[in-house]
Computed example of a mutant assay.
Amino acid sequence: MTVKDTITDKLTASFSPTQLDVIDESNKHFGHAGWREGGETHFRVRIATRHFDGMTRVAQHRAVMNALDAELKDRVHALAIEILPSSGPAA
């Protein structure tokens, strides 16, 4: 299973998102700190879920990071998080 698949599975199980995009941006970081051959080190997550309704932005980000704790300690060097409106992306 790829790191991207693991991230997708964990976030889906934790938050039942209405939208989830997990984007491997490792190629943009070639030669930078944390980059490894084969990629899967730098990710962007775009997530919309009712689970985050009423939570502060900091609490939302902490929830995502807690769900991905093992990956962040091992294989993922960088994670950008974008919280989208729970009804989906803005038009």
Rank of each mutant, 00 (worst) to 15 (best):
T18N: 10
K10Y: 04
N27R: 13
H77L: 04
H61K: 11
V58R: 12
P85V: 08
R46H: 09
A80D: 10
D9R: 15
F15V: 01
R50V: 11
N66V: 12
D9S: 14
A78K: 08
V22I: 08
V76T: 05
M55E: 14
V45N: 04
L68V: 03
G38K: 07
S14T: 06
V22Q: 01
L20S: 04
T49M: 05
T56C: 07
V45A: 07
V76Q: 06
L20F: 04
T49C: 10
D5H: 12
R44F: 04
R36F: 06
A63Y: 00
S14H: 08
P89H: 10
I81Y: 11
R44L: 13
Q60H: 08
T2D: 09
N66Y: 10
H77M: 05
K28M: 11
T6A: 13
R36L: 14
I81L: 15
P17M: 02
T41C: 13
A67T: 10
I81D: 08
I47H: 05
R50E: 14
V45Y: 04
A91P: 10
A13Y: 01
G31D: 03
T6S: 14
S86Q: 08
A67Q: 06
E71D: 12
R36Y: 03
E37A: 12
N27W: 13
D69G: 08
I47C: 06
R36I: 12
K73I: 05
A70W: 05
H32G: 14
F15Q: 05
P89E: 15
T41D: 03
D53M: 10
A63T: 05
T8D: 13
I83F: 04
R44D: 05
R46Q: 12
A48L: 03
P89S: 14
R57Q: 13
D5G: 08
G38A: 06
D74K: 14
E82K: 10
D69Y: 14
H29Y: 14
E25N: 09
M55G: 05
M1P: 13
S16P: 01
D69T: 12
G39M: 04
E40V: 02
S14V: 01
V45K: 05
V76R: 07
A80E: 12
A63Q: 03
N66Q: 15
V45Q: 05
D53Q: 13
S14R: 06
K10A: 11
A33D: 10
F15M: 04
H29M: 09
I23Y: 05
P89D: 13
A48H: 02
H42A: 04
V45D: 02
T41Y: 03
P85E: 08
Q19R: 08
T8L: 07
V76G: 06
T41P: 06
G39N: 07
M65S: 13
S14W: 00
A33F: 08
A67P: 03
L68C: 02
P17N: 03
S26M: 01
K28W: 11
K73A: 14
G38S: 07
T18H: 03
K73V: 06
L20N: 03
T2I: 01
G31V: 04
F30L: 15
I47R: 03
E71K: 09
F52E: 03
F52A: 04
A63D: 06
H61V: 08
E82C: 10
H32V: 09
K73R: 15
R46T: 03
D21F: 10
E25L: 13
M1Y: 07
K28A: 10
D74C: 07
F52Q: 03
D74I: 07
H51D: 09
A70M: 09
D5T: 13
T2K: 13
P17Y: 02
G34A: 04
